[in-house]
Design a protein around this nucleic acid. Structure first.
Ligand SMILES: [Mn+2]
Ligand SMILES: [Mn+2]
Ligand SMILES: [Mn+2]
Ligand SMILES: [Mn+2]
Lengths: 217, 217
DNA sequence: TTTAAATATTAGAGCAATCTAACATTTTAT
DNA sequence: ATAAAATGTTAGATTGCTCTAATATTTAAA
């Protein structure tokens, strides 16, 4: 197990390389809010520890060892978030920042007990899958709400963003995991969509918001 | 709020200066498992931040500001320990090491909710008082079992040591907070004592153990 | 009261993690 | 194809926290 900083790099590399399998120094620098040379020197350290594979001017990839460590941290993060919601009664919009800290707690006992108390959950409060203790994860993501055709009805399964401001926005619109929504109108000009929702009210979402909401038809 | 390292120094200074109001560099070095010059240089930094008062070759004292910060950390540590026992079902012997990590979590929401869930507890699983959110603490310690006269019966209220090996030892002897014990014999030679306990068995404790157990007659 | 032992401080160094400034490479635009 | 822009790397410095070796002060012993 590495330092807190190292764990945060590994986790970010994992998250940002999900799509293409690799991530660039500049993307990491932005995400971690540090300068490029800082990332550059850390990547070299991680490479020396065989956690990432990297050649100058190329994308950064996690090794198997790195991936395993990343999944362990993601597991702790998501278990912590669900725990904070289910046991401590916090809102889904306020748990991410606390989980950022709890994910670094080094205690298998602690996470075993949380896992058991929550009855071995499969998803976190944002609908993201929780890797099991061996690192297996079910990455079934379905469709983005921004791609759902007009007239179709679907159920919200996840949001791929857990920043407070985003979730506060959804709370204000009254949207939650499990809600059924129907796309009434998709605007060609800006990609915004109008939804019919159980609240009976029509809800307007910008593309920026809709693309972070995932649904199952 | 300072760094994790700084918080650990402040907490140790608080703990070790309880008795006399001050603590020496060598005592801190031993407790924190670092060398003397390490403590020396850190103390200077803490003094620059007005967290401790210190003059070369003199004892180290916490300032009011330092004391306030120490009590905040102690509060979080003890709330965490009780939470781990009451909510997660861990044993009193295994919670200290986890609490050492949780005490550094920076989230008032997290600790507010734990406090509420536990119904604003006054004591941790080892019988140590939990400072309230303003830093007030009830330091009623009573008598050490090592000072209890032969023939007297008293109730165990606290243990002033939460290392696993010590608590494992008490578990093996069957002693718990709240138990009633009677001193049958006190040995002059080595300070060891023999107790009568609800388990009906006689229990022999060395002085080293008895002095860490506190009772109320 | 002089010496020895214990304790504390200073000097100088190393590593992790960060930065700025300068330089190099790769990608994109003209 | 060349220039400009974007991206990445190297060099060198800083801060926090730690160390060893050398020196100083205080306390205890002879
Ligand atoms: Mn999160
Ligand atoms: Mn989440
Ligand atoms: Mn403890
Ligand atoms: Mn305790």
């Amino acid at each position: 197990m590495g330092s807190l900083t190292e764990e945060n790099y590994i986790k970010s590399i994992y998250a940002l390389s999900q799509a293409t399998g690799e991530v660039y120094v500049s993307e990491l620098a932005k995400k971690l809010e540090v300068k490029l040379p800082t990332v550059n020197s850390m990547i070299k350290r991680l490479a020396a520890k065989k956690l990432v594979a990297y050649a100058p001017y190329q994308g950064i990839k996690l090794t198997e060892k790195g991936k395993k460590e990343a999944l362990g941290i993601v597991r702790k993060h998501r278990l912590a978030e669900l725990f904070l919601v289910k046991v401590l009664g916090l809102g889904w919009e306020e748990v991410h920042d606390i989980a950022e800290q709890l994910e670094h707690v080094n205690s298998s006992r602690f996470y075993e007990r949380i896992d058991e108390l929550l009855d071995y959950p499969k998803f976190d409060p944002h609908g993201e899958p929780i890797p099991d203790s061996s690192g297996k994860i079910h990455a079934q993501k379905g469709t983005s709400l921004s791609d759902l055709a007009e007239g179709l009805t679907a159920t919200i399964t996840a949001v791929t963003e857990d920043e407070k401001s985003f979730l506060d926005h959804l709370n204000a619109k009254g949207l939650q995991i499990g809600d059924s929504v129907t796309v009434m109108k998709r605007e060609f000009f800006d990609g915004s969509i109008t939804l019919q929702h159980k609240s009976k009210k029509e809800i307007l979402l910008t593309h920026q918001v809709a693309e972070r909401i995932w649904v199952e038809v």
